[in-house]
Computed example of a mutant assay.
Amino acid sequence: MIVLIPAYEPGDALLDLLRDLAATAPGTPVVLVDDGSGPAYDAVFAEAASIGATVLGHVRNRGKGAALRTGLDHAAQAFPGDAVVTADADGQHTARDIVRVGQATVAAEAGGEPAMVLGCREVDRPGNPLRSRIGNRAARAAFRASAGWSLSDTQTGLRGIPAVMLPWLRAQRGDRFEYEQNILLRCRRDGWRTLEVPIETVYLAGNASSHFRPIIDTLRVGMPLVLFAASSLASFALDAVLLLVFHAVTGALVPAIIAARVVSASVNFAVNRRVVFRGEARGPLLRQAGRYAALAAVLLATNVAWMSGLTALGLGLVPAKIATEAALFALGYLIQRRVVFSRTPAPAPLESAVNAPLMNGEGAATRMEIVTTRPRRNP
């Protein structure tokens, strides 16, 4: 296995971790990516190189996601066929846990069931920093709503990645903290397994060294849901206006509901395909349109039944519309993400990416300086 550590303005905790790794797992290659920390941190990275790490450096700060992709690109080329374990530079991961996650990753792949192994902390423990507890709770809720499955620690940077998964991982979007969340949001959709390994919960100095921003980065995690909500709200407004107009003209409720839904659904499909699910919506247009039409028909039938029932009970047209759309919102999101706009590509073979040039998220060649050490191999 290879240990990959992205680092931005690291402290002594990084050097302590590297020394512990050298003692706990001697001969394990360590790739360290300096994400534009600047000259003030040259001594730290020089010391890291003297301990035995291979240090790659971004000229400017580009974000954790970009640093991880740089390291993954290097690992795929320098150590083809080896699993990679990513860890954080702030001292929150112990050498023992890094080795445990790596062993679980190698064992799963050797057993024919490769999986991304996630080192998960007990993030809600009362003694943990309040900032971390609040951020993790919000992130878990946003993740569960967006991904459709639960994970006990969505913010963990300790992850074991089997070699066969590397090409897929390197193709995911995001340059900052959202990169790791995008991986989690899409991995099961694209057919990859995940496993959890309990790890020690470590916070140094109240987690002051963490660069995670609870509000901003949680919003990044839940952005697909936010966009879908905005699209649904706009579609609802259009549908409601058309319903009132068509009902006033015709005096017939069911035909008015159907006509309004056909128009608003067509607009909603175009917006969702081009904006909300743009990272997933790469399948054939006609196939996706057919799936969406089938979903729209089911939701329309449900809508008609609910609207007819509620209005028959004496509820006004507008309140009945609001209640119906609110009830169908979550169902519509999950089905569109998992069925209408889903794609399950076959994982690309590792060999296809081994000799690829190091690239950043926009496809331009990565600018980097390599501080030399000879990569260490496992004996």
Rank of each mutant, 00 (worst) to 15 (best):
G119T: 09
L204Y: 00
D217V: 03
A108R: 05
G174H: 01
R137K: 12
V99I: 13
P214Q: 11
R125H: 12
G112A: 10
V117K: 14
L151T: 07
N207E: 14
R186N: 15
V164R: 09
N128S: 15
Q92R: 05
G135L: 08
F212W: 08
L151Y: 09
A171P: 03
G112M: 09
V221K: 00
E196P: 12
A110T: 11
L151M: 13
P162E: 07
Q172M: 15
A171V: 02
M223W: 12
V123K: 03
C120F: 01
L166W: 02
E178Q: 12
E122G: 04
F143N: 03
W192Y: 14
V197W: 12
F212A: 06
E113M: 15
G174L: 12
A139I: 00
A138E: 04
F212C: 06
R140N: 09
G191P: 08
E109W: 05
L185G: 07
A107G: 05
P126L: 02
I134G: 10
Y179D: 04
G112F: 11
D124H: 08
A208Q: 08
A208Y: 04
S132Y: 06
L118N: 08
G112S: 13
S210T: 14
A107L: 07
L169E: 04
D90E: 01
E196A: 14
S146D: 11
E178P: 05
L118D: 03
R193N: 11
M116I: 15
L184S: 06
M223R: 13
N207C: 00
D97T: 11
E113N: 15
I216V: 13
I216L: 13
Y179N: 01
E178M: 08
G127R: 03
N128E: 09
Q155H: 00
D175F: 05
S210N: 02
V197G: 12
A104V: 10
A115F: 13
G91N: 05
G112T: 09
A104E: 13
L204D: 06
V221A: 03
L184N: 08
R159V: 13
V99C: 04
W149T: 10
S150Q: 10
V164I: 12
L219M: 11
S150K: 06
G127I: 01
F177R: 03
Y203P: 05
C120H: 11
R125Y: 01
T156P: 00
G119I: 08
W168C: 05
T94F: 04
R137N: 10
A163D: 02
R186I: 04
N207W: 06
